[in-house]
Design a protein around this nucleic acid. Structure first.
Lengths: 173, 173
DNA sequence: TATTGTTATACTCTATAACTATA
DNA sequence: TATAGTTATAGAGTATAACAATA
């Protein structure tokens, strides 16, 4: 970046040892690629923000815990609908959170097909602690943009998500 | 969507059978959440665009095949650097592509530590076929935006990705 | 000693199909 | 019959640590 020299001066590498400086050849101009890289970077930043916590949660696990805490007794299927997840994927995820003692699964007394989800005391504690981390994490991202840019970004991301809502089922969130 | 009625009229559900209409409670205002949902939607759209193809590739596998095709003999480590991937993750991914007969791994004659990656004939064919799908997939996304919005979106995604470049190593793409 | 790649291990996410229980 | 959840199975991405081969 910025050097005008033509001669290759990378340490340990002679000109003949490398076919050429590898190129992206347009890959980095694809929206899908850019989006994936951004998402990866943000997720890693999110995980790093919890480095010192013991029960760490991924973005997805956090979303589930968040929704259960705000909707105690919510049906498992309602969560997977809200988050656009497959029922089997949701099952796996909840199984892990139950195994870790963060969630409880109870049979509904009104409709026995349903499983109500509740956060355990430990689960409550985790999500409460996480809220602070999330605030700071969000702030770090938001500081990269002006208010106008932020508004635009949110609008555009929502529009990208709508790609899916067209061919598949409706899910507002 | 659009109904002004207050009475719950959802089929099969009485008012008492549901604690309340589940709410996002701010989750859907988080940038991290919006980004993840957008990325998931776009990736599913990408996979759907290959539904009729036999060797299907994920976004990540596509990125690797793309780079190898454009940089024949590129070192495995160079690819993982360009894509911001862990070496072990890259190893796994390449193993699968080799097993599927799409990539070849050859020891470099110049530096025996290196493994040069080459696309097989089958691999060439797959990525050639995929380019058309990618073009259409990209077009479907780009049609959601104006030229100005597109430019902004790309800029903002790149800025989000830079969150990572700060704490970790530099990777231009 | 530093670099490149490899293996083992562990956890997570995604999805399809077939299935059970209940309404 | 339709809905909610479950299980088995398969494939894929992520990362850490320990290690081998080579420079």
């Amino acid at each position: 970046m910025g050097s005008r020299r033509r001669k290759s001066t990378r340490p340990g590498l002679t000109a003949e040892s490398v076919p050429a400086q590898p190129v992206f050849a347009g890959l980095d101009e694809l929206l899908g690629y850019r989006l994936r890289r951004a998402q990866g970077a943000v997720h890693r930043e999110y995980l790093a923000a919890q480095a010192d916590l013991d029960p760490k949660l991924t973005q997805k696990q956090t979303a589930v815990m968040w929704l259960v805490q705000c909707n105690p007794g919510v049906a498992q299927g309602a969560i997977s609908n809200m988050l656009g997840m497959d029922a089997a994927t949701m099952m796996e995820l909840v199984n892990r959170l139950v195994a870790r003692g963060l969630l409880l699964r109870k049979r509904s007394r009104i409709d026995a097909r349903r499983r109500e989800l509740h956060a355990t005391a430990a689960g409550q504690h985790v999500i409460d602690e996480l809220r602070g981390r999330i605030s700071k994490h969000e702030a770090r991202m938001r500081h990269l943009f002006s208010a106008t840019e932020l508004h635009t970004l949110e609008k555009l991301l929502q529009r990208l998500q709508s790609l899916e809502s067209r061919t598949k089922r409706r899910s507002s969130g």
